[in-house]
C-alpha cells in the first residue's frame, strides 16, 4: 500500500487542511479569524477585469485586486479554482484563461489547481457565439470523454501539476446517457487522463444532484475511485421550483456533513476541505455562521485524520506559504 502511494502523485501532495474560497471582501474576516483558515482557494478570474490595451479589451489582472490578494497570500498557502476555462466547450476552451494562469503561476505557487467540469459557451459551426452565463454540465457520454481527456492531459503537461476537476450541479434531465452515470463518468475521466488527474469532490453539488434526481448518494459514491479525491467542497444553497440549487448562500446542510464524514473516512488522498461562500451571502450567513461552518469542518477533518490514523501533516501555515 505504501509502495503504491509512493508512486501516486496525488498521495504526495501537501496536506493543506481547512480553507475558504477567497473573495476580495474577506480581508477583515480573515484577519479576525485567521485561526480558522489554513489556506485560501482563489479564482484567477475574480482578480481580473476587462481592460484596454492598444484599443483592444481583454481580460487582464487587476493590479489593485491582485495586490490585495498577494498581501493576504503572504500569510496563507493557496490553491487555484478556475471558473472560466470552459474545458467542456465543444468548439474550444477559453484561450484567454491559460495565459492568466501562466502569469499567476510565476508569482504565486500552488500545489495543484482545479476547474469546473462543465462548459460555459460554444461557437456554432456558422460562427454564432453563445454563452450560458453560468456553468452547464457535460452529458455523461463517450464523446464528452473524448473531448475532455486530451484537454486534461494538455493542462497537466503545461503546468506539471495535478489538475482536479469538480463535479457540478445539474438540473437538466437526460445527462446520464449511454448507460453511464455521473460517477462512471468521473472514474473514466480520471483513469483515462492519467495519475495526475484528481477530483475536487463537491459534496454539496453531489447531494443536490442526488436529491434532485432521486438517487442514493452513498450508493453512488461507493463506486467512486476515492483515491482520486484530493479536495472536498462543502456549501449550502436554496431550493427553487422543487430543485436544490448550488448557490453557496447558506450553512452546510446536515446531510452534507454526514456525507463529508463518510467520504473522509474512505478517501485516502484528501488534502484540503473548503467551505464555499458566495461573497454576496456573507451578510445573510453572518460572520458567526461562517465561523461555525469552518469550526465544524475542522472538527470533521481532525476526527477523520485521527480515526484513519493518518498523520496530521499540516505544515505550519507561514512555513508552508514560504515553501510553495
Amino acid at each position: 500500500m505504501n509502495h503504491v502511494n509512493h508512486l501516486n502523485p496525488l498521495a504526495q501532495l501537501p496536506v493543506l487542511g481547512v480553507g475558504i474560497n477567497y473573495q476580495k471582501s474577506y480581508a477583515g474576516f480573515l484577519s479576525r479569524h485567521s485561526h480558522l483558515v489554513d489556506f485560501l482557494e482563489f479564482n484567477p478570474d475574480a482578480l481580473c477585469s476587462w481592460q484596454e490595451q492598444a484599443g483592444h479589451w481583454q481580460l487582464r489582472r487587476n493590479p489593485v485586486l491582485f495586490g490585495n490578494f498577494l498581501h493576504i497570500r503572504q500569510k496563507l498557502p493557496v490553491t487555484v479554482h478556475g471558473l472560466s476555462l470552459s474545458i467542456g466547450s465543444a468548439s474550444g476552451w477559453n484561450d484567454s484563461y491559460l495565459p492568466l494562469l501562466d502569469e499567476m503561476q510565476m508569482e504565486v505557487k500552488f500545489p495543484w489547481h482545479s476547474e469546473h467540469l462543465g462548459f460555459l459557451d460554444v461557437r456554432t459551426p456558422e460562427g454564432e457565439y453563445l454563452h450560458a452565463g453560468t456553468q452547464l454540465p457535460m452529458p455523461f457520454t463517450t464523446e464528452a470523454l473524448e473531448l475532455l481527456v486530451p484537454r486534461v492531459r494538455q493542462i497537466i503537461a503545461r503546468y506539471q501539476l495535478p489538475f482536479l476537476l469538480e463535479n457540478t450541479t445539474y438540473y437538466l434531465p437526460g445527462m446520464a446517457a449511454e448507460g453511464m452515470d455521473e460517477v462512471d463518468f468521473l472514474n473514466a475521466l480520471c483513469e483515462q487522463s492519467g495519475p495526475k488527474c484528481g477530483l475536487l469532490l463537491d459534496l454539496y453539488n453531489f447531494y443536490c444532484n442526488a436529491v434532485n434526481f432521486g438517487f442514493d448518494p452513498y450508493q453512488a459514491l461507493e463506486k467512486l475511485d476515492m483515491a482520486r479525491v484530493v479536495e472536498i467542497h462543502i456549501a449550502g444553497g436554496s431550493q427553487h421550483k422543487g430543485f436544490h440549487l448550488d448557490v453557496h448562500s447558506n450553512h452546510t446542510p446536515e446531510p452534507v456533513w454526514e456525507l463529508l464524514q463518510w467520504v473522509l473516512a474512505r478517501a485516502p488522498n484528501v488534502k484540503a476541505l473548503v467551505y464555499e461562500l458566495l461573497e454576496q451571502a456573507l451578510d445573510a450567513v453572518t460572520e458567526k455562521g461562517v465561523c461555525q461552518n469552518l469550526e465544524r469542518a475542522r472538527a470533521c477533518w481532525q476526527e477523520s485524520r485521527e480515526k484513519t490514523h493518518l498523520p496530521d501533516t499540516r505544515i505550519h501555515r507561514k512555513k508552508m506559504a514560504e515553501s510553495i
Binding site: A90, V122, P125, P139, E143, L147, L172
Partner: peptide, 12 residues
Amino acid sequence: MSLRDWQAALLK
C-alpha cells in the same frame, strides 16, 4: 447530433 450541436441547441 454531435456534442457541439447539442451545446449550441441548448444555449439557443
